[in-house]
Design a protein around this nucleic acid. Structure first.
Lengths: 207, 207
DNA sequence: AAATTTATGTACCGATAGGTATTAAATTAA
DNA sequence: TTAATTTAATACCTATCGGTACATAAATTT
């Protein structure tokens, strides 16, 4: 690990753990979105004051960027790992089921930070909004490439359209994130995911 | 119509048209969300100053509520009218195709105000967030009732689950709204809608 | 022990947030 | 013509926004 907590050798030692503080910041951003989160919200949740925050993380925008990095590695860690499943069906199954558990997990805010972090915002948040759009697109591109590979290997019907399928799954995942913020209960969200799966094309011979 | 522009008989006449002003406000809220929109954004777009806004619409929150009412009657007017289609399939087809055109229509902001108006926000916006959640839920409930009626009339397979189907279609619609903010092009969004339709259960004997 | 370096805490910065008091202007009713 | 009524425009209110200056505290280096 590169970001292991290594106390700098000189000067007064930091009185807080940056990883813990980042995790607290992530939770606030997740719940309130980028612009809905104030510096006061952050410092209170992180248990530090503003100069410490700025010294450790730069500014609000850079802190948010670090938060979404942590987000994609930690609680929402169902997406990219799912790509490594053996079959296209299992990839999509892993994604949909992962989303169905993560988005409504009561141990953290509901929904998906990448979707609700800055879906609509003022000019001041445009850069963050664009960053989140890119993250969503990147996910779909990665899924598309995975499905294309599956098709090339005969793991999807010859008439399957990887680009369309990845857009469709991306749409469902983003919709599930909204459903989670609506307060849908876990079982219901899971049933939606299962319905999508039931219609997903597969070569029974291979799976 | 109840809100027809009727000049009050006494006092200085209003120098702006409230319907026009509301339409301008709607567009700003649509683009920037409830909390991302400032009073200055609103007054500039509406061409009026703050006291006029407050006299005519109450405050920012009430103005937003009037904006979402207008929104559901005007540009986003594909949802509830779709319920009156003859068959369940046609209802869903009308909704999905309506969304596929409305959400990416270049004559107004991309996406759906009911989804992106306040998906995540500060405590100050909680009431608006809850209102939008209710609107989303109400739409799904109405669709569910319509599909149940269809099932009762033999217009859906006997094993069809109206509640699950309405949640699924709601999820897809909300996901399509996010896709629209991502900047997906109209044809691609339409193809997603068509894919969903292709898997929607129907009794061919009836449609 | 002194000098250096880094972090903490308080207090503050200009800008902007939503909202309003007040006065002038424009209309109708008397 | 005057009084009553409503709107318009400016200026202002308090609170909070993101961000920082500055003095103090705590560690290491010399």
């Amino acid at each position: 690990m590169s970001t292991v907590t290594q106390t700098p050798c000189v000067g007064r030692p930091r009185a807080f753990d940056t990883d813990d503080a980042l995790e607290k910041a992530l939770e606030v951003f997740w719940r309130k979105g980028y612009e809905g989160t104030s510096l006061t919200d952050l410092t209170q949740a992180m248990g530090i004051n503003k100069p410490s925050l700025y010294a450790a993380f730069g500014n609000k925008e850079q802190l948010f960027l670090k938060a979404i990095e942590l987000y994609e590695q930690r609680p929402c860690a169902f997406f990219y790992p799912a790509l490594e499943q053996k079959t296209a069906y299992q990839v999509v199954e892993s994604m949909l089921m992962g989303a169905a558990s993560s988005f409504v997990d009561k141990s953290h805010p509901q929904g998906c930070l990448i979707v609700q972090g800055a879906l609509a915002c003022s000019e001041a948040g445009q850069a963050i909004k664009d960053t989140l759009i890119s993250r969503r697109r990147d996910g779909e591109i990665a899924l598309c490439e995975r499905l294309q590979r599956a098709k090339d290997q005969g793991d999807l019907p010859v008439n399957a359209d990887p680009l369309l399928l990845s857009r469709y799954i991306g749409t469902v995942l983003q919709g599930m994130a909204v459903q989670a913020t609506n307060g849908i209960c876990p079982q219901e969200l899971r049933k939606v995911a299962e319905l999508v799966l039931a219609n997903f094309p597969r070569n029974h011979a291979l799976s």
